[in-house]
Amino acid sequence: MNSLRKILTFRSSNTLWVFIALVVVFSLFTPNRIFINVRNISAIGKLFPDLGIITLGVGMLMVCGEFDLSVAAVLPFCSYVFARLLFIGTSPLISFIVAILTGMALGYLNGFITVKTRMPSFITTLGTLWFWRGILYVWSKMMPMSIRTYVPNNTPFQLAMAGNLTPFFPVQVLWFLIFAVVLGIVLHYHRFGNWVFATGDNRDAARAMGIKTDMVKIVCYVIVGALCGFCACMQAVRLGSFAATQGVNFEFKAVAACVVGGTSLRGGIGSMLGILLGALIIPIIDNGLILMRVPVFAISAFIGLATVLFVLLNTYIERKMR
């Protein structure tokens, strides 16, 4: 009984119930139960991790009390670095590592500017979002670059980034789960996770406790940058090209997914399970409604409504818990 109460009062449990409800409703009411058709699940599994993996890092950063809107620029920037390196003959693996390092460097810059200037991260990363997109446009001339010749189908790197483990189990899902588990362990079972929660909840108190809050924040930004670099390569390999439009609107979608997953916009509250579910719920709503033949023009309205309802629900639960 006690453990049942614990589960019911667990912050992300409301997200979990909604997730289960959505799966049940869409499974029962989509024509021919196409929602649970293996082809549909495989299609979702291949696509949602592009944003989902970044959402995991953004969620952790939000728990730390900060935002990162620049993900929508860091991702295509890293993708371009990856493509350029392939074009000059660098191996896919080295290009991949450099792209991730580029993401980490840009993440570090975001963190450094934010903690040193005490500027709200919303503004810092909005600025870097525009700055890096501008640099990218000038550098790339916005021209797409096909990388299929450099990363051909069925090569080990292509399979590791965009292949299938079984005919209908895309490798992207595995990567998403690996990152979720690793970040979940760090956030909930490691000392660094305690520092993240403490920094996000009350920075001054955390500093008084001896936590290096600036370092904690910078590390969280670097994690987001690394995940952007990873997703940039994963997406570019799947698409077979670099495109300047990669990551457009990811900044808001990632925040929305975290909020749906029960992460507080004020920091200090959130869970990796909630963030994981939040990353799944929005694409599931999108997919399920289209499968239910809801006019596609109405989908955005439903997603907007769902996001607001989740915030209201979480705020209500937050108040009840106090």
Binding site: L47, T245, V248, D286, N287
Partner: peptide, 13 residues
């Protein structure tokens, strides 16, 4: 919108 993954998701669904 212009984001390719969302476009592919909508077209596939």
């Amino acid at each position: 919108g212009l984001e390719m993954t969302t476009m592919e998701q909508r077209e596939t669904s």
